[in-house]
């Protein structure tokens, strides 16, 4: 009885040997993490509002594979960005570089802000100047007449 039980148990174990280990999500999780971090910085040109990391477009999958291979070959993130920019232009970068063609993009908001602040100060200064106009004697008298007794005016 005991032997039969052991035999059955061993047979069950043998069956388990047929099963295989689940394939890892990526061969090298660390590499995969670097690949995804880089792909998240890059625009997918097929579906332009998605990054290469997010997109399921075929091209994005191919580019992820390219990035994976290049990282595995020991290329740096900078090398891979240069590789993609050479093919697809600065447009692939979600953080465009600061250069002549992107000057308006980088400085535009700052210029608008400064212009807004200058306009605001200008207006406020003018309003203050307008408020500080002194009344002439005649105007004072007329104001007092309109508002009531001179005493009340003085109390204000």
């Amino acid at each position: 009885m005991g032997r039969a039980f052991v035999l059955a148990f061993l047979l069950l174990l043998a069956a388990a040997a047929w099963g295989r280990e689940a394939a890892p999500a990526a061969e090298n999780p660390q590499l995969e993490q670097r690949m995804m971090a880089l792909a998240a910085e890059l625009r997918c040109l097929v579906c332009q509002n998605q990054s290469i990391a997010d997109s399921n477009a075929d091209l994005a999958k191919d580019l992820r594979q390219q990035i994976r291979e290049k990282l595995a070959q020991g290329q740096s993130e900078g090398d891979i960005i240069d590789y993609l920019v050479a093919r697809y232009g600065d447009f692939v970068l979600y953080r465009p570089p600061f250069k002549l063609t992107t000057l308006a993009l980088w400085l535009g908001p700052l210029i608008l802000l400064v212009a807004g602040l200058i306009a605001l100060f200008y207006r406020l200064a003018r309003r203050r100047a307008a408020a500080e106009v002194e009344l002439s004697e005649a105007e004072r008298a007329r104001a007092a007449l309109l508002l009531g007794s001179p005493d009340e005016v003085d109390q204000r």
Partner: peptide, 13 residues
Amino acid sequence: IDGRVAIDYGVYG
């Protein structure tokens, strides 16, 4: 077949 050359040519559509 695998689109490698197309990537070199910056093909996306």
